[in-house]
């Protein structure tokens, strides 16, 4: 009995000691990355990438004469390759997947940012960033709050909004309350009025996305 008790205590103690080394339990999940919205496109349309790199590439002028940099490799002798027959269903799946990848690549105007692939979140393509910019502009444009209604301290309300493919809002919830009812309500109304948002861009394959909207009062004073 004592031994069992000792073992259990040892287990719970080691559990307690090991606990801090594990990531802390978070209810408010911190951002892995935040979208930096510098400018909002007035029209939500495809724009050509104007990065320095692409400009440099575009600026390359073709030479007059073609230069062969590498000799053509010797052709391998034709060998009969035996195709192992795949089940019909399986091959169709692969074809579809390849097609999807091809479409995705075709839809991406610029290079994919390396920081974009964060877990389950959709990859942050420029197109997706522009979509976020539209959400930002829509909500900001609808946010009504007269000065003097809330105290002159910095408040923050975070509202999580789930947006479906067609742009409609499927759910809204407070992730963080500012502690001021009137500030919270104004933020909620702004998101409600801003929706429905535009349809997802084609490159975005997800059926829905979840976005946290952080409202601040710092600049109101």
């Amino acid at each position: 009995m004592i031994l069992v008790s000792f073992l259990l205590h040892a287990f719970s103690l080691s559990f307690a000691i090991l606990l801090p080394s594990m990531p802390a339990k978070k209810w408010t999940f911190g951002p892995v990355y935040t979208v930096d919205l510098v400018s909002v496109p007035a029209d939500f349309q495809e724009r050509k990438s104007t990065s320095r790199l692409s400009r440099d590439i575009a600026a390359v002028t073709p030479r007059d004469r073609q230069v062969v940099l590498k000799k053509e490799a010797d052709r391998l002798p034709d060998t009969a390759v035996r195709h192992s027959p795949l089940p019909r269903e399986e091959s169709r799946k692969i074809e579809r997947a390849i097609e999807d990848v091809r479409k995705k690549l075709a839809a991406q105007p610029g290079p994919v940012m390396p920081s974009a692939s964060a877990g389950k979140q959709p990859a942050a393509t420029p197109e997706l960033n522009r979509y976020y910019a539209v959400i930002w502009a829509r909500i900001k444009g609808q946010w009504a709050l007269p000065r003097g209604v809330v105290p002159a301290q910095n408040l923050e309300t975070v509202i999580t909004v789930r947006i479906l493919r067609d742009g409609s809002i499927s759910s809204l919830q407070y992730e963080k309350s500012s502690g001021n009812r009137y500030f919270d309500q104004s933020a909620w109304r702004a998101v409600r009025k801003a929706g429905p948002f535009p349809h997802f861009p084609e490159s975005l394959r997800e059926s829905n996305i979840e976005v946290g909207i952080r409202f601040h009062s710092a600049e109101m004073r």
């Binding site: 978070k26 990355y33 389950k120 979140q121 930002w136 009504a144 709050l145 702004a190 952080r214």
Partner: peptide
């Protein structure tokens, strides 16, 4: 209870809005 929480800590996109556009309640 710990396990699903750890799995759930994926990156969510946050959009910051620093000031309202409308100074009056419509």
């Amino acid at each position: 209870f710990m396990t699903p929480c750890l799995q759930d800590t994926y990156g969510r996109v946050y959009i910051d809005i620093d000031s309202p556009s409308l100074p009056k309640f419509p």
